[in-house]
């Protein structure tokens, strides 16, 4: 039906966009794991996939923006929706940047920290993975958003705690001689931790948007 042509197209694009973000989080997690355990080939593969996913996400976002504005769809909500998509896009951008930093800077991560780094990346990825269903819920049943985003806050908090513990171990417990290496590790901890912060920002935007739609 013609009036629904653009609506259906933008719904499809948004769904694809959210799938891409979700996949991006999984690939990021895998990438970090492969780097830490020295699977160089797999890591490079992950890096390429994530890079492609990030490009796809950008394309979907721009297409949605184009349809919403050229077809004057949802004049009251489109600003909020575009902001939501931008914040979500930011998470996959950050994930890609992080993985690239691993590739370029090749940080020396002591084997004792491998487990912690894996867990940190898993927590950050879990925050993103939890925010995606919340974003999906906003479009169809905004009253469910609230019960979905509490997980994001939980994972973000856990990621923060773990990042603090890693930094403490790097500077106080582990026998790392060079200060530059300590700094390097601190930055990488921060980079991964930032991912969960980005997911938290999405959750904040979502909660306000859901309130706007439900009241």
């Amino acid at each position: 039906m013609k009036p629904f042509k653009h609506a259906n197209k933008s719904i499809e694009l948004i769904d694809n966009f959210l799938n891409t973000i979700d996949r991006g989080a999984i690939i990021f997690k895998e990438g970090v794991k492969n780097y830490l355990y020295g699977n160089r080939e797999n890591f490079v593969d992950n890096l390429k996939t994530l890079s492609a996913l990030e490009t796809d996400a950008d394309i979907y976002r721009r297409k949605v923006e184009n349809i919403l504005y050229t077809q004057s769809l949802m004049p009251q909500l489109r600003g909020d929706i575009m902001r939501l998509l931008e914040e979500l896009d930011n998470t996959i951008d950050l994930a890609k940047k992080n993985l690239f930093q691993f590739d370029v800077e090749v940080p020396k991560i002591p084997a004792e920290l491998n487990q912690d780094f894996v867990k940190l990346s898993e927590l950050s990825a879990a925050a993103i993975e939890s925010v995606v269903p919340a974003a999906r819920a906003y479009f169809r049943s905004p009253e469910l958003v609230k019960e979905k985003i509490h997980r994001v806050y939980l994972y973000e908090k856990e990621a923060d705690k773990l990042a603090d513990s890693i930094k403490r171990r790097v500077f106080q417990e582990l026998p790392i001689e060079k200060l530059s290496e300590k700094f390097h590790l601190r930055y990488f901890t921060l980079h991964i931790e930032n991912l969960s912060d980005a997911a938290e920002r999405v959750a904040d935007v979502l909660s306000i948007m859901a309130i706007k739609r439900t009241t």
Partner: peptide, 17 residues
């Protein structure tokens, strides 16, 4: 609306009509 769970973009078109 709560029962039917229409997508917000589709709902916009319905409301327009």
């Amino acid at each position: 609306l709560r029962r039917t769970k229409i997508h917000v973009i589709k709902l916009d078109t319905y409301i327009r009509i």
